[in-house]
Design a protein around this nucleic acid. Structure first.
Lengths: 192, 192
DNA sequence: CCCTGTTTGTGACGATTGTCACAGGTTAAA
DNA sequence: TTTAACCTGTGACAATCGTCACAAACAGGG
């Protein structure tokens, strides 16, 4: 009997790639279900990232700390994958942290074990590539938002593309994600 | 006997992953060497991206067109891989173009053929994943630059991290890459 | 060598945003 | 209910940047 978290993950995997019960069996040794309470860290800046996290419930933020200030660069909701690709690939220390914003349950992919099981089953390698693609695509969208739009346009873009995010993330947290001061975001909201 | 371009590519591949002569033989059917003259398009906005380009000589830019204005989001020099991951993965039309800024020679990876040979040789799938990682890592760096730094800091960051880029890219082209007006970049330069 | 088109530098000015200060609201624990 | 901590709204002001206009420098073709 699968847990609810595992069922969500299985659905997610099937949306990406063909996956047989055998592939699933090969993958499961790399997986563990983990619960984080609010404000706990999934990944701390300065440490090497050695896992991917499939968010099953709750949500997280990724943030850099610049001169004592937090700057959010991503939010991860249900059925998103949170990780630091760079640190994962190179083994360098992570430049940002990932933190639970609510009580969160995730399925943790241990990278070391993932590498082992990838060798045994190429379907897992293929899944890894698909996940990477998803993450890269999400990054590219967010980056394009910054390069092409004014702060106000960025806000309006999110209203269209990701209204759920605006519902769940507080103004203070959202402001740094949009690259503006908290006060400016407050004014953007009030003038509409 | 391998061409110079192919030798460069082989070096690049070996820097990413272990690759046997057999792997190379399996890969070559997906490769062609292509020359572009200055201003020619490797990829046009509105068309679906069906290839990756390994830049062997010369350099290219990726740019969005917003309200008639070009906004550069990446430059690809020798031994970089230029493509649109999103369009490649989803089959959607590309939102940006890739254009030769000098006479350019590339090795073109045909995606359709790449998918065929990946099935035959898992080492090619693994190479694909490594390339994706590289591209995603590069994207993440550039995005972080935008989210964490002021225009002046971005310029100074490039001076440190990528001085070659500043040497080869004209002020006008560079300004949109840094997210500032041409005049502002000129002033940033003059006040140092 | 000159001419033409393109690129770069600079001044003036207005618009947008960040910063600082503080007031009103909300939430959760005592 | 009260209190304290936190989040949000708002005004004033300074700093930064974009826009417009034009001059200077540069590059390539005749």
């Amino acid at each position: 009997m699968l847990s609810l978290s595992m069922e969500n993950l299985l659905k997610y995997i099937h949306s990406l790639t063909n996956f047989t019960p055998d592939n699933w069996c090969a993958l499961t040794p790399a997986l563990t279900t983990v619960a984080f309470s609010k404000d706990e860290y999934l990944l701390q800046a300065g440490k090497v990232c050695d896992a991917l996290f499939f968010v099953s419930s709750g949500y997280c933020r990724a943030f850099y700390n610049k001169d004592g200030q937090d700057i959010n660069t991503a939010f991860f909701f249900e059925n998103d994958i949170a990780t630091n690709i760079n640190s994962l690939a190179t083994g360098e220390k992570s430049a940002f942290s990932i933190q639970a914003m609510e009580p969160v349950t995730v399925i943790r992919f241990d990278v070391k074990k993932l590498r082992e099981v990838s060798l045994l089953d190429p379907a897992i390698e293929a899944l890894g590539r698909k996940c990477l693609q998803q993450i890269a695509a999400k990054q590219e969208k967010h980056a394009a938002m910054f390069k092409l739009m004014s702060p106000q346009e960025r806000y309006e873009f999110l209203e269209e593309q990701d209204p759920g995010l605006l519902q769940r993330v507080s103004l203070t947290q959202l402001s740094s994600y949009l690259g503006v001061a908290r006060e400016t975001l407050s004014r953007i909201r009030s003038r509409r």
